[in-house]
C-alpha cells in the first residue's frame, strides 16, 4: 500500500512541467526515504534526478518499495486538472497496475480522483558517484533562464567558464557572438538574488543550449539554481525544492573533435 499526501500540490505540478519535455516515460520509485525518479533523455545525453523526501509529505505511507512506470505527458495532463492550491494524494496498492491521484480543494469542498494505468518501463539506472566539483556557481534561477534563452537566439552551444572574476556564458553563431559575465554579488539584500562562486579550480565546458533551456523549465521550483562543474564530469544543474529535496539535471558536455 502506498499513500502520499502532499499539501503543496503545486510542487508536483511544477515538477512535471520541468521534466516532461526531456523524458517521455519514467519510473517513479517510492521507498521509506521518499519519492524519487531518475531518467535519461532519449538521446542519452541528459539525465534528470528528482527526490522528494518522505518527511516533506504530510502523510507518507509506503509499505514496500515500489516502482511505478508512467508516461509523463499523461501525468502532466492529469495534474493540470488540479488547482494550484489543491492537496494532492497519490495512492497505489502493492502489485497494482494503476495509480490514483486525488485532488482536494483547501476547503475540502471538492474532491476529485483520477486513476491512471501504470506502464512497464525498462530503464537503465545510472550510478552517479559523489563528486567534488571544481567550481560551483549559485545564481538566481530567473537570471540563468534569461541567459540561456538570450544566448539561444544567437548560437546552439554555450561555453560556461568559471574564473575567480566570475562566470562567463559565451556563444557564437551565424550572426555573431555573445558573452555574458556574472560577477559575485553576495552583498545583495535578498540571498535569493545573490550570485556566489565557489571555485577550487577554473573550469570551462561547452554544452548544447537546447538542453540548458529545457532545464530552465524548473525555474518556478526555486528562486536560485546551482551549476556544478568539473572538467571531467557532466554539469549538474540543481533546483532545490524547499524543505523537500531537489530536481537535478546532469548534462554531458560537448568536446572538440
Amino acid at each position: 500500500m502506498l499513500e502520499l499526501r502532499l499539501v503543496q500540490g503545486s510542487l508536483l505540478k511544477k515538477v512535471l512541467e520541468a521534466i516532461k519535455d526531456l523524458v517521455t516515460d519514467a519510473n517513479f520509485d517510492c521507498s521509506t526515504s521518499g519519492f524519487s525518479l531518475q531518467a535519461m533523455d532519449s538521446s542519452h545525453v541528459a539525465l534528470v534526478a528528482l527526490l522528494l523526501r518522505s518527511d516533506g509529505f504530510e502523510h507518507f505511507r509506503c509499505d514496500r518499495s515500489l516502482s511505478m512506470g508512467m508516461n509523463l505527458n499523461h501525468v502532466s495532463k492529469l495534474l493540470k486538472c488540479a488547482s494550484n492550491d489543491d492537496i494532492i494524494t497519490i495512492k497505489a496498492d502493492d502489485d497494482a497496475d494503476t495509480v490514483t491521484f486525488m485532488f482536494e480543494s483547501p476547503r475540502q469542498d471538492k474532491i476529485a480522483d483520477f486513476e491512471m494505468k501504470l506502464m512497464d518501463i525498462k530503464s537503465e539506472h545510472l550510478g552517479i558517484p559523489e563528486a567534488e566539483y571544481q567550481s560551483i556557481v549559485k545564481m538566481p534561477s530567473q537570471e540563468f533562464a534569461r541567459i540561456c534563452k538570450d544566448l539561444s537566439s544567437i548560437g546552439d552551444t554555450v561555453v560556461i567558464s568559471v574564473t575567480k572574476e566570475g562566470v562567463k556564458f559565451s556563444t557564437r553563431g551565424d550572426i555573431g557572438s555573445a558573452n555574458i559575465v556574472c560577477r559575485q554579488n553576495s552583498t545583495v539584500d535578498k540571498p535569493e538574488e545573490a550570485t556566489t562562486i565557489q571555485m577550487k579550480e577554473p573550469v570551462s565546458l561547452t554544452f548544447a543550449l537546447r538542453y540548458m533551456n529545457s532545464f530552465t523549465k524548473a525555474t518556478p521550483l526555486s528562486s536560485s539554481v546551482s551549476i556544478s562543474m568539473s572538467s571531467d564530469l557532466p554539469v549538474v544543474v540543481e533546483y532545490k525544492i524547499a524543505e523537500m529535496g531537489y530536481l537535478r539535471y546532469y548534462l554531458a558536455p560537448k568536446i572538440e573533435d
Partner: peptide
C-alpha cells in the same frame, strides 16, 4: 567541430 558526449561515459549503468 564539437562532439556530444554520452552520459554513460561518466556514470556506471547499474
Amino acid at each position: 567541430i564539437f562532439i556530444q558526449v554520452y552520459l554513460a561515459i561518466y556514470f556506471l549503468i547499474l
